[in-house]
Computed example of a mutant assay.
Amino acid sequence: MMPDGWGQGRALFGGLTAAIAWQVAEHGVSNEQHLRSMTISFVGPVQPGPAQLQRRILRQGKSVTQIAVEIVQQQETVLAALFSYGKDRPSAVRITDTPAAKVPAESDEQTAQRFPQSKLMPEFTQFFDYQVSVGGLPFSGTDSREFGGKMRFKSETAAISIGSLLGLVDAWPPALLPLLQQPSPASSLTWTIEFPEPLPTDCLASDWWLYHAFIDYAADGYGHTHAHIWDKHGRLVAISRQTVTVFG
């Protein structure tokens, strides 16, 4: 049953539906195989109410397992996801000097912008706190290709999980929206998120997490963006890539 209260335009919040698909995929995977990458295709708007969750193991090996999950409503696939799990193995290649966060430090919180309390804000944003310190607010007409700041759950105090991190990352509007001068619809077409390491065990969903997105290319109603996400200690925890549709 898909829940109420998490609306995002005509559909449920994509971070929530992705987290539900992850919970289905996670069942039965070896503890030695960590989630390395997941790709979500938002085929149609997921609605509150009954849904079928379909899970299929595409391949299960000693090192890598690939699992497909679909959410089906009214006999139609509305979300399709591919999850890739992988076990650590010896390698001569090791490059771990990850990009440093460009989000301003704690001392700059006073200058960060908050999303306005407005009926234009999607329903799900009530569950999150945001501080925008890179680029501009949505529909502010900025010319910056960068967008980001900090995000956290308002009341969720549990340790961070893949599911809650998916919610935090997707809670950010598409990086194209600050370039627009007036409200216009936009949505994610595909979303790939990669996890360089298992998530830290010393961080909570209510901690501040750093987010920095960059527009790689945008034209003809579509945008291609990538983002980095760091924990409160400055460790890179995820790399997010999106194809976005925008109608303005």
Results as ranks from 00 to 15, higher is better:
P3I: 01
D4C: 01
A19H: 03
A21L: 07
E26C: 10
E26S: 13
H34T: 13
M38V: 13
I40D: 00
S41M: 07
S41W: 11
G44H: 09
Q54S: 12
R56M: 00
Q60V: 02
S63W: 00
S63L: 01
V64S: 08
E70Y: 01
I71S: 04
V72I: 15
Q74S: 09
T77L: 06
V78A: 06
R89V: 13
S91A: 12
I95D: 14
P99W: 12
A101H: 04
A101I: 01
Q110E: 05
K119D: 14
M121K: 12
M121C: 10
F127Q: 15
E146P: 01
K150C: 06
R152A: 06
I160C: 08
A171Y: 12
W172G: 04
P174Q: 11
L176T: 11
L177K: 03
L180A: 12
Q181E: 14
Q181H: 12
Q182E: 13
Q182R: 15
L189C: 07
T201D: 09
C203F: 01
L204R: 15
W209S: 08
H212A: 10
D216S: 12
A219I: 12
G223S: 15
H224L: 15
T225E: 11
W230K: 02
H233K: 13
A238G: 09
I239V: 15
V246S: 10
F247W: 12
